[in-house]
Design a protein around this nucleic acid. Sequence first.
DNA 1: GCCGTTTTCGGCCCGACTGTTTTCAGTCG
Length: 577
Amino acid sequence: MENPEVAMVFEEIADLLEILGENPFRVRAYRNAARTVRELPEPVEEIVRNPNRKLEDLPGIGKDLAEKIRIIVQTGDHPMRQELREKVPPGLRELLDVPGLGPKRAWALYEKLGVKSIEDLKKAAQEHRIQRLRGFGAKTERAILEALEHLEQVQRRVYLAEAKVFAESVVRHLREVPELHQIEVAGSYRRRKETVGDLDVLVTCDRSAPVMDRLAQYPALADVLARGDTKMSIRLKNGMQLDLRVVPDESYGAALQYFTGSQAHNIQIRRMAQEKGLKVNEYGVFRGDKRIAGKTEEEVYAAVGLPWIPPELREARGEIEWALQGRLPKLVELHDIRGDLHMHTTATDGRASIEEMILACKEMGYQYMAITDHSKRVTVAGGLDAKALRAHWAEIDRIAGRIPGITVLKGVEMDILEDGSMDLPDDVVAEADWVVASVHYGQNQPREQITRRILNAIKNPYVHCIGHPTGRLIGKRKPYEVDLDAVLKAAADYGCFLEVNAQPSRLDLDDVALLAARERGVLIAIGTDAHSIDELRFMEFGVYQARRGALEAKHIINTRPLKELLKLLRQRRSSRA
DNA sequence: GCCGTTTTCGGCCCGACTGTTTTCAGTCG
């Protein structure tokens, strides 16, 4: 039983309890439990099995939820879910996905009109049956119909890289307003989550009207959803929602802290403030009516007794404890990166030549780089066999030889074949400076099989690093069924590195896995997997993901100077020789 | 349902906006 499966049981229970009008705090307890389990850096099963561990030690898990976790792990489900399902029609849950519909209205629609699905909802709205209900009206009915039209778009989260395009363009657009003082895009974008659902734009200025008028002129705007004195919401043409908040300058830090979230992090901060007799809201930190902080984020954190916490860590995963103990990590930064260790050229499926890639990496200021074209199994990419690969390496040496100022490592992305063997003989890869091993075929193999394959690669002394270790494509393809815990354990034991693949659609290992890797002392390589010169720029997204995993420069091998890196690579091989 | 350097009961983050309301509930983040 995987952690996300356990979490999904609790998420469903929370939704169903909420629809039934249960105590909101009880609902929240289930939501918290779902989140705790989902983000656990190890299988919850492990804790259940280990007699020396207690589920009750996990935050937000008490006696009752611990017992429920045990039952779910052992039976794959919990009777409570089944009981709730009998009370709530199966389609009712999906109504919660409609913006503007929450548990109360969903239940009212079911009770009064028998609405049990999105289909029913649409029909009821079209037949104008909704506006006759108490608490609803003509406007609400129209809003529901409107929301249904955009439902698929609304549910879609975009890659961080795509969000960045709009975040930067809307900031440029709004900066034209002379009255505007400060502007920042907060929310999950500022926390650098791998996907972003909407953009939270925070602005300080004396009057909000000119900024809001200007936003109404934003070229990518589709329509205005709401507009008040301090808050305005619009929908963009790509389906994303954008929320603008306007606060006075003296509240900028408090508002930035608040709108950056995460919600769970903010709840912890506010609870700490309460214990000190303080109140935190988006306008400042207050003792009674007196504002004691709010101009900067540093002030806000200081008021509750904490150092400033980097946004990437604000997920209520222990960062507040770290801050209290003075153990906040000094997160890796983009300028710490000295080289890119994963890229392709026209020798296989890349679109730029060896020379173009070298010049581009030099332009980025790198001290070194590795060219890692595919091995022969990846036929669609024109993967190289032993002979072609040796010729390719000779070509790399020849071209690199006349470009001073950057060291080019001769590498390969070698396939881990379906049967667990490697796509190239040992004597060939022994000649490479840098070997990434990746799974591209047989991704749907059962857990034991695909785990064994990757463990084989980790144990192979010529393999330095496992590329995109779970193979997921965000929102498109699930990760392999691989036992990630076993992979981390083996990587630590054998001194094999694991990749953060910086492609915006991969970003794999993800943040949760990276926290676990950090715990186990596994070193990470960030590679862009660039198939063109432009994609070398993806390095920043890999760095963001590493930061979300609380990684420091020392955890990442391509922050090391060349000499140290080469020493690490030698160690990896000699340790197995 | 969880949690406790005042507590084992009574709290649980906080405010904006909308629509349907004559004073507030629902939703959202």
